[in-house]
Design a protein around this nucleic acid. Structure first.
Lengths: 371, 371
DNA sequence: TTGAAAGCGCTAACAA
DNA sequence: TTGTTAGCGCTTTCAA
């Protein structure tokens, strides 16, 4: 094991334990001559020395750890990206992510929090697999915490979530710009930030494009292949020339159903999805134009918000240096006074152009590379 | 923060610090009267006490941490399951998983290992996104290590991998049992454990079924939708009534191409995939019969092997109690003597029956619920 | 520039 | 049954 201690290194290098410590870490309060330092360093890795993080953190009173608890993000297709973003941003700041996926299991969640707290994390990121409102676990109150891909109703914690409205609008506008005016929307019937937000975006786009919103153009269907498959007749019945699907899976199902009817995308119907679930969207025939979820950014911004939060507490005066804390900065002051309120930080969903939209009529400006 | 220390608890409860420690942990060498214990416990969580893991580990000389380093498993669709399995098994043994996804980046990998080693992990699990041979990073020599979904050529480390041969055989046998005799195999042209193993399984099944192997029935295609899509003519040219696709993505592409030619699965062609990539296989029309990768088990067996490894070193005599250490137990003895050799532990790939196989001819035994 | 030494919070002998 | 105390390995004053 890592039996080599700083003591061993110091002895082998013929210096004191303190000097060894200084030589290895670049302590700025102490000037160690270059050659002592080199000597110590050389001895250290000849001996295979690895500093003991426990002893270090104990002495320093700082762990450099950030806890990341998710309710299943690791098993979802959107998983990795969020974690990856968080990890990268953490590393960039000299912090390390402790990740636990609770898979939605409350017992595991309890244990996970206990573990994180015992390991002196400097903050907690609580992330949900699906964008939704949550009731924050009590443990979040024990340390700095931020919510990712979820939010609490009362805005007690900073939250970072995808901008569903803008996304829905972007998707619809892709179609409008291509000249479509009869645009159906296959939406998930459940009330959720996604279904509500995307619908609002759809309506906004329509209205901005001077197109009247017709409730009959909105078709309910479960947000998966089966839903899309089953929605085909309803979609065709609307006489739409284009359809915005709640997500890529829905679009995939619709593709299948369309093909069985001898109809082609995009010639007979233009389609746009949502999520940019690569395994699907990039490999459909034709490849699906869609709107991506900003997973990586959610991770990055989650960590960034957390660091800003700590900054604003520990820092000397100047908090959150331009970092994207909840829109409007309210709450960054008033430490420990009345409860602060955070508005969720909305992260844009980028359009991903592929081949499932057909330009139509003269209205088509901006449309260049479409067949 | 977790400013409450054991000292505080002890004082508040009017006992010594040692008694407090004993009351909180259930130390078996000491008998604490039930009411002192209860009192201490109550005070502890009134104060919101959380033991400091660093101090504890430092004093105990044990971290209860297991490092899990993967080269991108968290961003792959197969991700979560492996980690989930590992995490569950770790927890079951009072250990906790420290997960880092390096995304294939060697710099991050270095840092990740350093981090793990500094945090005194009791062992390392090194996992690959795709089943393959690897050159073990040197850090693996610094502590007990096992490989998951990958292996080193020289068997220097215990490895846990999917049984590709058995999987390929299972897939093919599904078709043979349904009465097919002309079975094509769309395989990935690259040399890999998967392509080689599945092909071998295919041949084994054929031979066991009394069917002659014909190289012309094996079609090369990249292992994705595009590959499957492009392979359709070659497949049809073989006159096959059934086809085994290297993976589900290939099958998905083939489905598309087939449909464009007005052909139907399984009526015109039976199809079986591999990987059981749920987003795809479960939602194709018809749902795809396939062979699953045993991801969860890989995770479980990975940590189990690791624990067995440590057991066999630290344990008193009786090592690896029936635990699945490399086939044949060689190497469990001979600590520190000549280098031991571990054969990879092969984990079975389960068949997942769905609707893409059509029973054919009289040979069909065992086939019950097929249309 | 360097060393000695006092903790960081906890566990586990050893005493009482 | 309980308390005292010596570390665990490292950082960081304070002296030299």
């Amino acid at each position: 094991m890592g039996k080599v201690t700083l003591h061993d290194v110091a002895k082998a290098a013929g210096v004191s334990i303190a000097t060894a410590s200084w030589a290895i870490n670049d302590n700025k309060n102490v000037r160690i001559p270059e050659n002592t330092r080199r000597k110590v360093r050389k001895v250290a890795d000849r001996l295979g020395y690895h500093s003991n993080a426990f002893a270090r953190s104990l002495a320093r009173g700082r762990s450099d750890l950030i806890g990341f608890v998710s309710d299943g993000v690791a098993t979802s297709p959107f998983a990795g990206q969020v974690i990856q973003g968080a990890q990268d941003e953490a590393w960039r700041n000299g912090k390390i992510l402790l990740v636990v996926d609770t898979d939605g299991n409350k017992t595991i969640e309890r244990k996970a929090f206990a573990f994180m707290l015992e390991h002196q994390v400097e903050g907690l990121i609580y992330s949900s697999w699906v964008h939704r409102a949550i009731t924050p676990p009590v443990e979040l109150d024990r340390t700095a915490s931020v919510l990712v891909n979820c939010f609490d109703e009362f805005g007690r914690f900073p939250a970072v979530v995808p901008n569903e409205v803008q996304g829905g609008r972007a998707a619809t506008e892709l179609l409008i710009r291509a000249g479509h005016r009869r645009i159906a929307f296959v939406n998930e019937p459940t009330i959720s930030p996604a279904s509500v937000g995307r619908l609002e975006g759809y309506r906004l786009a329509l209205s901005a494009g001077g197109i009247e919103y017709q409730p009959t153009m909105v078709i309910d269907a479960t947000a998966d292949q089966e839903g899309g498959y089953g929605a085909v007749d309803a979609v065709l019945a609307t006489g739409a020339t284009a359809v915005f699907c709640h997500n890529d899976r829905t679009a995939m199902g619709l593709y299948d159903a369309l093909r069985e009817r001898g109809l082609r995308v995009p010639d007979d119907l233009s389609v746009v999805g949502f999520d940019n679930q690569e395994v699907i969207s990039a490999h459909l025939h034709p490849a699906l134009t869609t709107v991506g979820l900003p997973q990586y950014d959610l991770g990055v911004l989650g960590v960034r918000s957390l660091l800003a939060l700590n900054e604003s507490v520990h820092g000397d005066g100047d908090a959150a240096d331009g970092v994207a804390v909840a829109g409007g900065d309210k709450g960054v002051e008033g430490i420990g006074d009345e409860p602060r309120h955070y508005d969720p930080l909305l992260v844009a969903c980028p359009a991903v152009m592929r081949d499932s939209i057909r330009a139509r009529g003269v209205t088509a400006t901006r449309v260049v590379s479409l067949g």
